[in-house]
Design a protein around this nucleic acid. Structure first.
Lengths: 208, 208
DNA sequence: CAGCTGACTAAGCGCTTGCTCAGCATGCTG
DNA sequence: CAGCATGCTGAGCAAGCGCTTAGTCAGCTG
């Protein structure tokens, strides 16, 4: 039904963070429904039915419909930030690290487009406190990208006149992938990542 | 309250297409509310109140809440396609025309971000027939951009390995502007357009 | 001035929404 | 085996939804 690797985001095996399998099924159902129809067009009956239970069962595992959204959004943002930090702190010069960042950032937004849509396009539906957490994570992501571009400029590897605008363009390209990428897209997430990596390096005026 | 040039999209002066001022106020209120909260989170009471009338008055001017969305979406898409066609058919070589296209496409998505958000992020809420119209317009936009890139490649002005991917990236950059651009953005729409024009030309490997 | 029209409102209908609650089955614990 | 916690369901409540209806009123027409 979905190709989203939701399993990557939440532990399902027994352990400290383990939760009932039913709670996991609810997360999955909620993410798919939020991504397809949007938060407000999704009913608790939709989610519960897709997870194979009655609407009342949802409230045993989560406080509210919004709590499900908050959980998905926070986990998705945390995963994205981790991915970005990993690339920025990686080996090689600024150009090499930027290429890896874009490849992985892009591939993630294609592969995990279901969660990606919730992460990027359902922010306005978040309760205020969850929004604050998520907004901070988004700022961190943007800052990591800016820092890497700055490093490339200082090293003479990039030629960029406005670092903030360039950082916006880089993250923007990746984020928007979650909007348009579909099952029917001919490029694999990894292929798309490589091509976008190439385009971004040229955009930043990298000497290759 | 809003900086969106909604007035550009619908004739308000007396004439063949003129409509009561109240109908125009409803469009404006609906566009702002759909952009801020999304179609499903917007109530007919929200729209009517913002337009300074009772909920029932909405139905004198429009058949349904969805009809308002369809009108906004179709007018917005038509305006964007016109803008793109204008740039593609303009004077100069492929690079010069591409620069103008990106400048104007980007500036439009910043300036008309309210309508832009409805256009790009409320597609799923459109009735089926309106969606079909709009989907065709979106395909035309993508095709126009692809055609221009193709022309640049043939002329030896661009160096692009995958025309479709490059076209996606170009339109994607512009569309996503309507998501993140706000009143508080330091760049004017025109400044942003010029900077994005520069970035895109480099991305396409243009000899400048 | 009567007759009519178009723009509008107050009231509310039928339905769906998020969420609650009393009760039931299952399986673990002493 | 009693006692109890856990995970769940069926029924349903209060609130809010899109939209309709009956009726008001200003302003134009003959």
């Amino acid at each position: 039904m979905t190709s989203t690797p939701l399993a990557d985001l939440w532990p399902t095996l027994p352990g400290a963070d383990a939760r009932p399998e039913a709670a996991y099924r609810l997360l999955q159902a909620a993410a798919e429904s939020f991504a397809e129809r949007g938060f407000h067009a999704t009913t608790t009956r939709d989610i519960a039915t897709a997870a194979g239970m009655s609407p009342a069962a949802l409230y045993i595992h989560y406080q509210s419909k919004a709590a499900l959204l908050a959980e998905i959004s926070q986990a998705g943002h945390a995963a994205t930030l981790a991915l970005v930090r990993d690339a920025v702190a990686g080996q090689g010069g600024p150009a090499e690290r930027m290429r890896r960042l874009v490849e992985q950032f892009t591939a993630w937004h294609a592969r995990a487009r279901t969660v990606g849509r919730v992460v990027n396009y359902e922010l306005h539906a978040l309760p205020e406190d969850a929004y604050a957490v998520v907004a901070a994570l988004r700022l961190d992501i943007e800052r990591e990208v800016s820092t890497l571009i700055e490093a490339g400029v200082v090293a003479g590897d990039f030629q960029v006149s406005e670092v903030r605008t360039a950082a916006r363009a880089v993250t923007s390209l990746g984020i928007d992938v979650s909007r348009w990428y579909t099952d029917r897209s001919t490029e694999t997430p990894e292929e798309l990542g490589r091509r976008y990596g190439e385009l971004v390096l040229r955009m930043l005026g990298a000497r290759i």
